[in-house]
Structure formats: structure tokens, C-alpha cells
Simulated assay, not measured.
Amino acid sequence: MKTDDLAPQWRKSSRSNGAGQCVEVAQNLPGVALIRDSKLGDGSPVLALAPAQFTAFTRLVKDGRLDG
């Protein structure tokens, strides 16, 4: 495995919008999904979740149960 394989490959979430609600996710690392604020880029804190936790989190977002 190359070192580059261990670097997160960030992509903007399809749930991001132009109103400052922007997140990026990286799911290319084994056993973990990463979430960060896309506005902050590399300076953003990163939330690391196990795959089952990420699935539960995205379900809550899609259901609108995390809206402020």
C-alpha cells in the first residue's frame, strides 16, 4: 500500500448548499468515514465515524432530524 492510499480523498457532499451548509466526506480509508467543513478545507476539524455510525448520521440528515 502506498502512502497516497492512506490520504483522505475528499468530495463535497451532495447535501451541501450555497447557504454556508457545506461539508466534505472521505470514505476511501478502511473502517472509517471522515466529515469536515468544506469552507475551512485542510484547517477544518475532522469527525471520524465507523461505517455504521456514518450510515446512521446520513439517515438523520436525510430525514431532516438534525436541522437547527
Rank of each mutant, 00 (worst) to 15 (best):
A19T: 02
V32G: 08
A33E: 08
L34C: 04
S38Q: 08
G41T: 07
S44Y: 09
P51M: 09
T58M: 15
W10A: 00
R11T: 15
F57Y: 14
Q27H: 12
G41I: 12
R15Q: 14
L40S: 03
L60H: 11
S13E: 13
F57W: 05
A52L: 11
Q21D: 11
R65M: 11
D37Q: 02
P8A: 09
A19N: 14
L29N: 01
G20M: 07
Q53A: 15
T55H: 04
T55C: 00
A26W: 10
A26Y: 11
Q27T: 14
G43W: 03
P51W: 05
R11I: 13
K12C: 05
L29F: 12
A48K: 01
G43D: 10
R11A: 15
Q53T: 12
L47V: 14
G31R: 00
V25P: 00
A26T: 07
G64S: 04
A26K: 03
V23Q: 03
D67N: 13
S44W: 10
Q27L: 02
L40R: 02
V46Q: 03
A19G: 06
A52T: 11
T55N: 05
S44K: 00
R59I: 13
T55M: 07
R11K: 15
L66C: 02
P30T: 03
G41N: 07
Q21R: 06
T55E: 12
A48D: 03
L49C: 09
G31N: 07
D63Q: 15
L47T: 08
V23W: 03
Q21P: 01
K62A: 13
V25S: 09
Q9V: 15
A19R: 10
L40V: 04
A48H: 03
L66S: 00
K12A: 05
K62I: 15
P51N: 10
C22D: 10
K62Y: 00
R36K: 05
R65G: 00
A50F: 06
G41M: 10
L47R: 01
V23R: 02
S38C: 08
D63K: 08
A33K: 06
R65Q: 15
V61M: 10
K39H: 08
A48M: 11
Q53W: 10
S14M: 02
S16A: 14
P45N: 07
P45R: 03
T55D: 14
I35L: 14
S16R: 11
L40P: 01
G20P: 07
C22A: 10
F54N: 06
P30I: 03
A56D: 08
V25E: 02
G43C: 02
P8T: 11
S14A: 13
G64I: 06
F54H: 10
R59K: 11
L49P: 07
A52V: 06
W10Y: 08
Q21L: 11
V32S: 06
A50T: 06
P8Q: 06
P45F: 09
S14Q: 13
S16C: 09
L40F: 05
G18N: 14
K62V: 13
S14P: 14
K12S: 07
P8W: 09
A50Y: 06
S44L: 11
